[in-house]
């Protein structure tokens, strides 16, 4: 995984709450066997009409959204299915971070494991971000801060281990493998066997 230390980008705002992973990447696109290429179908049914033409009123289809790497989402973003295709699709589309007041457990976990920063902020900060689409934010993952365009610094909390893995680009498989001896002895010594 490539280290993610700092993110500097403009925001795109998707204020609807409870955006589920089916909306992020619909099930019919899950027949892939690789991680790549899902961005083309991210938010597909919100982006396109049935005849394949673009829905012009959808935010991602508007010119000012081009190149925006930070998604400001409504409450409870990423609820629903455990499909890791959701963060893969967002990353492939070009997003580097998602900010909301609440992010569903499995989605957040999957996102952080793939280098997509998923950040929870308080209602006031969220309100400000919703009201200022296109704001240029500077996120410092190490310091766990978001700097607003006027220089205001907002702190966020992130699990220390997840942050460490993000900023160092650490693959958690390697971390688990270092515990091979403990795993072996757990298997041998437990009082019952599955």
């Amino acid at each position: 995984m490539t280290p993610v230390k700092k993110i500097k980008s403009r925001t795109v705002v998707l204020p609807t709450r409870d955006i589920d992973t089916d909306q992020i990447i619909a099930a019919r696109f899950l027949t892939t066997t690789t991680r790549e290429g899902l961005g083309a179908n991210a938010f597909h049914d919100l982006r396109y009409n049935l005849d394949g033409s673009e829905k012009l009123d959808f935010i991602l289809n508007q010119p000012e959204s081009g190149g925006c790497g930070i998604l400001i989402a409504g409450n409870n973003f990423g609820c629903g299915s455990s499909r890791e295709h959701a963060p893969w699709a967002l990353l492939d589309y070009g997003f580097e971070a998602v900010i909301s007041t609440e992010i569903a457990d499995i989605f957040r976990n999957n996102a952080l494991k793939n280098g997509l920063l998923a950040v929870v902020v308080n209602a006031d900060t969220h309100r400000w971000l919703l009201d200022h689409p296109g704001a240029e934010l500077a996120i410092d993952v190490e310091a766990a801060t978001i700097t607003l365009p006027d220089g205001t610094v907002i702190e966020f909390t992130i699990d220390g281990f997840a942050r460490h893995c993000l900023t160092e680009g650490i693959d958690q498989m390697g971390f688990l493998q270092e515990h091979a001896a403990s795993i072996q002895s757990f298997e041998e010594n437990r009082s019952w066997k599955p």
Partner: peptide, 11 residues
């Protein structure tokens, strides 16, 4: 998620 499926398969 799928990354974790890999973790469980391997460890």
């Amino acid at each position: 998620g799928t990354t974790e499926v890999g973790h469980v398969l391997a460890t």
